[in-house]
Design a protein around this nucleic acid. Structure first.
Lengths: 189, 189
DNA sequence: AACGTAAGTTAGTACTCAATCACTAACTTC
DNA sequence: GAAGTTAGTGATTGAGTACTAACTTACGTT
């Protein structure tokens, strides 16, 4: 048993929760399996976070932040076509190395509707705000071109869906995506 | 209490299940609420279907069939740019009139990973096969152009995500999408 | 070395939910 | 109108689950 500061533990919980929520979604993931993954007792999670929802929210927010930072770092100092390629490459790397982040995004999306209907509008607000920040983050390097930004994000969402469906990298559905996305297979080795 | 043939009831169940699963996903939807929506007792669902999973599967398959038929009918006799616009318009209509179908698609995607990990590979196979049929359905009218097909589907997936997140039709994230998609608001009236 | 505090656990509660079983009511056929 | 079949229900069960409360163990400080 390794003791850790509450803050460090919370970080571990967020990482574990991201992996588990990415797999099973909010309702398909028990706090038990998150605790197991962290290596801590299940009730202790409720010392670190007030509720399961709060854990999901923390993981979701982290996921958005990470994605935004990925694009910021990739496009730093670049513009137009160059920025586009750099960001596409960066996302390809995420596909290969952090697929749970893509899945977590998808889970966020589908959880909004349920939350909205349950009267928890803050969650939807938070997700939409995150998306807008992401939108602006790619919009600028792409020369503030709306059409270009939309297309970039659209390809991103298609990639998320294909990954979710479990298409292997050599499958023909990956044809027509950024050339870099096809190198997924190679990168994974 | 209205008596109905088992086959008719199964249809009602599929419709109700689509609406409910679209909202809450597989794990977030109880058989109870589906039964309530159908207007039938919860145990009776298990006469009509062997398990909850079977209900989800039936709803998912129906959803894919419907989407494919929508594109087939829209593109009938058209080609290239014309087919593209016709299919885009058709999808816009689905957004406005059958948003649960979009959400059900999203729920299918995110459920594959969980099913895959639980050893139920048939579900993933079914979803991927459905996607390929959809792919081929739009591929042909678009002049068998891979790039064009990918872009069309990518925009579709972005739309699904924006709808899931609950962005209202007048929000600026809808800029840059098919012009027809922007008429969503008007169509809804 | 004693003490306070922060990290962590064990035991338990109240509840939900998929699935089963034994049964009843309505329609159909001869 | 009796016999058989099909549609449908009520009661229940057993497994899981979010969260609480009360207790214990390690660590830093003086």
């Amino acid at each position: 048993m390794v003791r850790m500061s509450a803050e460090e533990r919370r970080e571990s919980v967020i990482r574990a929760a991201t992996a588990e929520f990415a797999r099973g979604g909010y309702y398909g993931t028990s706090t038990e399996v998150i605790a197991k993954r962290v290596g801590v007792s299940q009730p202790y999670l409720f010392r670190l976070f007030p509720s399961k929802k709060a854990i999901f929210l923390a993981a979701a927010e982290r996921c958005v932040e990470d994605t935004i930072r990925t694009f910021e770092e990739a496009s730093e100092g670049l513009e137009g076509e160059e920025a586009l390629h750099a960001m596409a490459n960066a996302y390809t790397k995420v596909i290969a190395e952090r697929p749970e982040r893509l899945m977590m995004q998808m889970q966020m999306f589908v959880t909004v509707a349920a939350a909205e209907e349950a009267g928890e509008h803050e969650f939807g607000e938070s997700v939409r705000a995150g998306w807008m920040r992401l939108w602006d983050t790619v919009h600028l390097p792409l020369g503030a071109d709306v059409k270009e930004t939309t297309t970039f994000l659209a390809y991103g969402m298609l990639i998320n869906c294909l990954v979710a469906m479990g298409f292997p990298p050599e499958h023909r559905v990956w044809e027509g995506l950024y050339p870099s996305a096809r190198e997924k297979g190679r990168l994974e080795k």
